[in-house]
Write a protein that binds this DNA or RNA. Sequence first.
DNA 1: TGTTAGCACTCTCGACCGTTGAGTGCTAAT
DNA 2: ATTAGCACTCAACGGTCGAGAGTGCTAACA
Lengths: 344, 344
Amino acid sequence: MQLGKRKLQILQAVIDDYICSGEPVGSRTIAKKYGMGISPATIRNEMSDLEEMGYLHQPHTSAGRIPSDKAYRLYVDKLMKIRMLTAAEAEYIKKIYEQRTAEIEKVIEQVARILSDITNYTSVVLGPQLNKVLIKRIELIPVDGQYALLLVVTSAGIIKDTIIRIPADVDSGYLNRVSNMLTVHYRNKTFAEVDINSIQDVQKEMTRQKEFFNSLVDALTESIAQKEQTEVYLGGTTNIFNFPEYRDIRKAKAFLSLMEQKDLLYSLLSKFDKKGVTVVIGTENECEQMKECSIVMTTYSIGDKVLGTMGLIGPTRMEYSKAVSVVRYVGETVSKYLTSLFEE
Amino acid sequence: MQLGKRKLQILQAVIDDYICSGEPVGSRTIAKKYGMGISPATIRNEMSDLEEMGYLHQPHTSAGRIPSDKAYRLYVDKLMKIRMLTAAEAEYIKKIYEQRTAEIEKVIEQVARILSDITNYTSVVLGPQLNKVLIKRIELIPVDGQYALLLVVTSAGIIKDTIIRIPADVDSGYLNRVSNMLTVHYRNKTFAEVDINSIQDVQKEMTRQKEFFNSLVDALTESIAQKEQTEVYLGGTTNIFNFPEYRDIRKAKAFLSLMEQKDLLYSLLSKFDKKGVTVVIGTENECEQMKECSIVMTTYSIGDKVLGTMGLIGPTRMEYSKAVSVVRYVGETVSKYLTSLFEE
DNA sequence: TGTTAGCACTCTCGACCGTTGAGTGCTAAT
DNA sequence: ATTAGCACTCAACGGTCGAGAGTGCTAACA
């Protein structure tokens, strides 16, 4: 059977209506709302065909039709109209530029909020993936006598830090020497390549300041571990309650629990690192608990380097056109902003 | 009417049973489970009295009784048995000591998780309240040429930082001068007293490095603002789904939305800053949306200085004995740990 | 041959019982 | 003062029934 023009029109009408109402769509509704000069009976025939072809299905005999994931896929790839951002949306997204700090994590956090505020979906943003990034410098900066700041400067211009305590008899000269030692060893390595125990010089020093050194090694190890397991930022998790399909408390709970499993979210999203917007619909998801959700996501970068992924999660009957346009624009804006910050 | 010993026993039985089952408790149940050699009929009479006195009420005529907030208050103040921590709980709480970093925020974050993990309630921990704390030093530390780290060292030993960008022609000598200037001005002031525009010297400098200075002032202002509006850390927000009274999707949504209103939570919790454990039961809460919840909270401190509040939020039929013992122990442990870290 | 009106059929949903069971309050006996 | 007995109340459960929405099929029509 062929997917003629009329079938496509009807399919689009069903999808549009279902996305907005969440209720199965009947032939009468289509005829009335999207009237294209054909009777409900004709539409019924076409819908019956579409069902046979796997684009629609009925929850029960005497109900209207619901689009299948296959239908959404067609919709996203071919049918969907490209939607422009409203002025208010574009304005809101500009907030990204209002950041004062050069800390990438803060920017990312705000992006998550912006995404969910605009779309009323749940947003997920992965923090910068640092495993491919090169270490430029490691520094121990004395602060206020008893503390030192452990800084790691990377090629992506990202700087993160931990505050550690130092014993009274460690002076700044000593810290300097250790910093230099660490830098010499780790310059141009990735975080994955760092093996803290491998440093010979360091181990010699250890005999002298054993306790301090242990805590330094601990801090560095943890700092590295933390950077390897990227952080996951969420926005608008309770937005899911707005959808009638999540009235069922068990579904809502399942969804929210899923959102709490950061490592799972991370492994789901981090797979997609190609540029442009990716849409994963329902059962296309590998993860069992996500079979009724869709993800619309994109990457963000500094210059050409892809740093992380951001996206929206919602029910499969998502407003794809809106989601795609917002995600695309936010992704581009963030990339531009980060590039302007860190790329010289 | 007097609250005789037997009435108290019965009241306690009702509360204990209701806390654990969530179902209205009938006279038969009491007689059987908590048998004290009296018949259901007698218990009925006593319960009727207790109802008259405002300690119990019935959801409808032919149902068992439910304790009122007044009853819970009596229970918490007088009836409740003090519960010891289990070995496993104590062990779990010890995790606090496993922190590597001296960043107070990281510690707090973990505390929130520990509290909710152990109790299966939702935990709320307010970050350190810095408005009463004195500034010791402000430093701008050059990092990697184009960035500087803005550090604020306070009398509570707390150090927080923001990374800002600096123009190419600002050298470390200049940063040093600015740091010194800021330190001289703000030493021994609280964050609340800081008025960035008040510095005369600073304004003079501004003519020379106007753009940088604006961004510095912005960063400092924001850093201060951020410290004034304390952060709120949550743990186990979805635990609320475990309670049958939150099966109702609207209630669950209301609760979760409440948890997202950090400023409201902050203003609710920050009022209570006396040492020891405070319990606020249902309608004792001023906040309308919390009338069906109880809060069990305590403070944490460095030395004698109270820094913040931590607690558990759950339905009024909370396991108060468990909640109180855990909150107390965690509070004490955190205080001890922080004191050992920051107090010399 | 494609379209459509008509109609019987299916299925969900909400309203409306009657029944069940838990729990009460009252009364009278102990 | 306590308690057994009993009538009464009410929520919850389950079944029936009609309304309404929507379908598929058939036969007529262009």
